[in-house]
Design a binder for these strands. Sequence first.
DNA 1: TCTGGGGTCCTAGGACCC
DNA 2: TCTGGGGTCCTAGGACCC
Length: 424
Amino acid sequence: MSERIALVDVNNFYVSCERVFDPKLVGRPVVVLSNNDGCVVARSQEAKSLGITTGAPFFQVKQFMQSHGMVVRSSNYELYGDMSARVMEVLSRYGTWQEVYSIDESFIGVQGNPDQLGKLATTIRAAVARSVGVPVCVGVAPTKTLAKFANHVAKHNAHLGGVCSMDSMDPQLVADIQSRVPVTDLWGVGSRTGTRLAGLGITSIADLKAADVTDIRKKFSVVLQRTVLELNGTPCIAHNEERADKQQIMYSRSFSSPVRTIEEMVEVMSIYAQRGASRLMNDGLWATLLTITAGTSRFASGEASFPSITLKLPAPTQDPILLTRLAVGAMREIMLPGASYVRGGVILSGLQPEPEQAVFGIFDAGSDEKHVGDVLGAVKARFGNKSIGLGSGGLATEPGWSMKRDYSSPKFTTEWAEIPVVKA
DNA sequence: TCTGGGGTCCTAGGACCC
DNA sequence: TCTGGGGTCCTAGGACCC
């Protein structure tokens, strides 16, 4: 009986979600695009085989995709979020603890001898397929870093049937694989660190595993030191079973057409600040810092401008009126009129639970202004997000810069009007 | 013409205090 | 002319992740 960690993740998650509701997509090359239909963020195996890369700008590969009969979808985060919750619920039944690590993957604590662990991994895979309908891979190992690695092995070796439990593997085979897989494929080693490691002759996972930990600590960081320890079987990355409280809430989007005037940017900030305030209320959090940002395209030749400023709020708040007023006022000051902004954002940080003394708006009274937020929230919950808003945030028609989603699938699971109809 | 969004953790350096 | 040392808190920026 040993304690082990399983890392379960959904294969090509967004594409797999689309396929659940549109089985015609099975077996075909499919890609899902980022917000604003900007670039490719998810690809089916068939699309990967045709050479489509993650992050490829859509406009560059559009022709190629059409000529190969690829299916394109805009991202549908409501659908993916709902499907994610279903997968996580199933996984929670199989672990002694669970840490939801991202929208499509979760660590869970598992126990057993090598034989039992292998069977459990297969059982989990079948359970998710049966109750949610998406394919997963399972990696089982003594540490998180190794569980990630095992998952990687499961994914890249079809004959393993989507599971890989390190306890059942021949150690020599593990060593062979680790000497072939580049160190940058490892969880926690990105391209920057990879370049520096290469300078020291460390290019494979096996090289890093054999490196001197104190030397790594000195030359790099405690983060990479932990990775080396974990590769050698010593768990040292803590699990956060209960969701750690959020540290920040960000609402940031690129625009479908550039924003150049103060009037339009005021509209953007007004809407984004109100979205941020709604999220604060949903999460029961109050912000003490407000950051606003905007940016011109990094790919354009025109005048570059990246205005950004952080304001200390007078007291913890979630008030949409105050946040809107401050965001709009600050942006007026720092933006460069005439520059072609392609994105903007509002970040709320210094988050905390309900404070004893909160500030509500520009008046001193308090209760009435708190009321405004509550009423906005209630109306949105009942009639939808676009039903009400303050100032420019209440525009009934979409502004010219708002997000483009030309290839969206319906909200199959979260919108009554869009639930699929089954005819028997 | 058109290149995503939302997070986390760690570190270095400055301000401030005794 | 000489000009400590140690601690905490905060922030900006780097690196990474999906």
